[in-house]
Design a protein around this nucleic acid. Sequence first.
RNA 1: GCGCCUGUAGCUCAGUGGAUAGAGUAGCGGUUUCCGAAACCGUUGGUCAUGGGUUCAACUCCCAUCAGGCGUACCA
Length: 605
Amino acid sequence: MKVGIEEKFMIKELISEKTAEAIKKAAKKGELGQLKPEDITELFIEKTKNPEFGDYAVNISPLAKNARMAPPKIAEAIKSYLNIDDVEVSIIQGFINFKLGNSILNNGIAKIILKNKDFGRNNLGNSEKVLLEYVSANPTGPLHIGHGRWAAVGSALANLLKFSGYEVDQEFYINDAGNQINNLGKSLWIRILQELGVEANFPQTEEEGSKNYYSGDYLIEVAKEYLKHNKDKAEEFYKNNSEPLNPSDEVIHKMSGFAKGIMFKQQEDLLRKFRTEFDTWYSETTLHQSGEVEKTIEKLRSLDKLYEKEGALWFKSSEYGDDQDRVIKKGDGSYTYLTADIAYHYDKVERGFERLINIWGADHHGYVARIKASIEAMGKNPNCLEVLLGQLVNLIISGEQVRMGKRRKMLTLEDLIEEVGVDATRFWMIMRSIDTTLDFDVDLAKSCSDENPVYYVQYAHARVCSILRTATGERFDQDNKTLLPPFITQEELKELVNSEKFDKNFLEALWKTNSEKELESTKALILKLESFEDLVQTAAKTRSPYMIARYCQELAKDFHYFYTFTRVLNVENDVMKARLCLINAVKQVFANALDLLGVCAPESM
RNA sequence: GCGCCUGUAGCUCAGUGGAUAGAGUAGCGGUUUCCGAAACCGUUGGUCAUGGGUUCAACUCCCAUCAGGCGUACCA
């Protein structure tokens, strides 16, 4: 079956277009007072607050100013030109309300069956080439919970943007150069010495430089791994480096190289397990080695954006809105972190990406102005860079807040996933707007109870599947002790939702009932399903995967409500078929939505 | 001091300048001979931090104040 006109449009679009037409007609005829057709602003179609009013509504009060008429009169004038098939139009004060008829609702289901996996897909992005960078952790230790939030949100956002017609590349910038990497090497050296039985300790106080070491236990394993293959080498190093805290550059280099290799591999493996897949792993070191960093400096120099002061080289970022100028090359001749980052972002633009989206922790927000300044200084449009600043994560364990410290003992992302599972962790990480500090309640996320929104959603999906299984399974007749044939065979069920030959007429049976509850719950469910398309666009536009998570909860709610009042099986055959088709649509929408989140939609649980 | 984020029900959070500010959870009271009760229904609970301003209309926009978080490096 081909997609008919009715199935092409979202209900909101349909109402919006028809209303705009009606307003234009009324304005042309001079029935809207002073209002001219060009005064018409974008109409805001909303769901009604109260179902008694109808299903959708548009508030025409904003037109009152230009028209110089009372809102109810405006509404009356517009209404007389408003004619939408199978939609009842009514007026209450400044609102025009729309009540949808059955055939519009049936079309909503038909659209889902026809579009299937592509229901919700749209072309908002218009193939814009996006580089989405997130996580970008230092390879100096295990990923922590905060990284987990960006991994979950970032990968979900990537899915969402792709679904909305953007061409997305996901990238992880490996901060594998600079001081922290040296510190990592020095720290590993101490662990290796300890494994060799040498007296070697991390500095204990800040004065002694404890901040410059990674004293977490995880390096013990790395030290053991190193010694497995390089024991002789380590002993040889020790002969020439008797002071544990002052190894030679050669030792530091070897140690940091080994450690970061292992750390990076661990991060990569964990992220994959967490369903976060990057297209590119971009190493900071390669930026230095390829001369990209030098080239960037030369470019800025040639544009007269650099100057020397107090033995350092500065970038005039304050010319572009930054609070102050920034050091590009330190007094000791080395570069700051910013320098490579400028080169990196310039490279992103040079690679042909039209939009750069970064997810950064809020603790990096001071960086936004400098990077934007550098993009502008290099002659590109700084607005192509969108930085999504996410607030941090607090862990709640047994009702108490546990603060994360990088260099102390901590709960890593791996531990969390181990305890809570990938699905629950992802859902919890995604379900809040990134503007708010996330309280991650480990006990709640772990609990397989009604308190856990993940299971609430997954349970709804499993319930749908359970009905479908029951529908096609043989039944045992208690009274006669015999087996009855299934309600419907596998083949019949498949035919019912076959998008090739789909005939929506049989959906009329959904409305045969006289039960208010059945009608109401069926209608609410269909409206929720239909609204997914619009929601995806809003979520993509505002870069808000959390909206998808909320939607899943709402859909689950509407389905459970439907389930409670409306039986699918053991009803008249044509009604059953129509309802089976409806719950198939529910299953499909859950699958599409959960897929965007990277959360499983289980058949049973 | 300055900058960014936050402040909405006991708790965790939604809310696009528009109708009586919503959900989950907690509390209280109910619902299962019948497709999965990991569910559902009802009910209690609000000075939308405070004070001004703009607007026909403000939780929403602007200003100030208060509170919390995060920044404010020749660290990354």
